[in-house]
Nucleic acid binder design. Structure first.
Length: 306
DNA sequence: CGTCCAGGTCTAC
DNA sequence: GGTAGACCTGGACGC
């Protein structure tokens, strides 16, 4: 018996939330254990629940400007239901207050459109998941990224009730422990992660052994952990360079860095009708958005995604 | 069939 | 500090 939960589509500052645009905020919704369903305009995702098995839920627009969470599988206890709902609200970043960004954007012809509820980046249930997935996007095609992440979730992820017998869906993203216990051979021969394999294993082991706490990076305030220091810590991770650090930072709600890669560079050049634009020029152009520079950059590039 | 390179990173100068 | 070269993999190309 499915169970329905509801939540208000409002940000922490009372600002509007465009759910469909949030669900299309970046490419990770195309990687398991997330599954974007275009026709139904829903996001299916399998999330870990503390003290219980992972659960697969479906997120969509409900009535009266609210969002709906439909839980797959047996009915949850009150506590587990509350945790599942909190998990979805976390993934949708409803705790973020974008009202100051909207004020900034409302006076900008390039960006005023975002104030109707764009700019909320989907994040994974854990920082660990976003870091691992980001490493899997480096120096390869999207199909390769998918192959690696599919393998991780399919073979190492804990199944939710009602999970299909095979395939990557209906399973939570693997824990650091599960990834640490997988041997080098798994990364080489099953995930076919190539030279990234040792990086993935190293990050997983560090977290599993307690030497590295990635989750604290998601909780730290900019006062306690300024963007520059956060970037420094991310760059220290094996396999994480400038692109990956900027991408992870976007998923952490830290928007000062521009994501500069082989997709965004030409996409921005097209946007301004030039053959190429230097990284320095892009940084200058977005400097006026201050701590929201990277978010402004990303939104301008992805405006036509919805 | 070989070469190139994709939502880069690391090491060695 | 800035910049070549190497690096797994496997589609997309050109020949």
């Amino acid at each position: 018996m499915a169970r329905q939960l509801e939540f208000p589509l409002r940000g922490a500052g009372g600002e509007p939330v465009d759910l469909w645009r949030t669900l299309n905020s970046h490419g990770f919704v195309d990687l398991p254990p997330m599954l974007l369903q275009e026709q139904a305009r829903t996001l299916e995702i399998t999330i870990p629940i503390v003290g219980a098995r992972p659960r697969t839920v479906s997120v969509s627009n409900g009535n009266d400007g609210r969002g709906t969470v439909t839980v797959v599988g047996p009915t949850l206890s009150e506590r587990a239901a509350a945790r599942a709902l909190a998990g979805v609200e976390h993934v949708l970043r409803l705790d973020a207050d974008l009202s100051r960004f909207y004020e900034l954007a409302s006076g900008d012809p390039d960006l005023a459109w975002v104030t109707s509820g764009a700019g909320r980046m989907v994040r994974s249930p854990t920082v660990f998941e976003d870091v691992i997935k980001t490493i899997c996007t480096t120096n390869c095609t999207w199909s390769a990224t998918k192959r690696m992440v599919v393998a991780l979730v399919e073979h190492l992820g804990a199944p939710a009730p009602g999970a299909p017998r095979e395939g990557p869906y209906g399973r939570a993203f693997p824990t650091p422990q599960a990834m640490a216990e997988a041997g080098e051979g798994f990364y080489r021969e099953v995930a076919r992660a190539g030279y990234r394999g040792p990086h993935l294993l190293s990050v997983a082991r560090s977290v599993a052994e307690g030497d590295l706490d990635l989750e604290v990076l998601g909780r730290a305030s900019p006062e306690d952990l300024p963007d520059a220091e956060l970037e420094r810590q991310l760059l220290a991770l094996p396999g994480v360079g400038p692109y990956a650090a900027a991408h992870v930072m976007l998923t952490l709600g830290r928007y000062s860095k521009l994501i500069l890669d082989s997709w965004t560079r030409p996409a921005y050049a097209r946007h301004v009708g030039r053959k190429a634009v230097s990284d320095a020029a892009m940084a200058r152009r977005f400097k006026r958005y201050g701590s929201y520079a990277g978010l402004a950059f990303w939104l301008i590039l992805t405006r036509d995604w919805v």
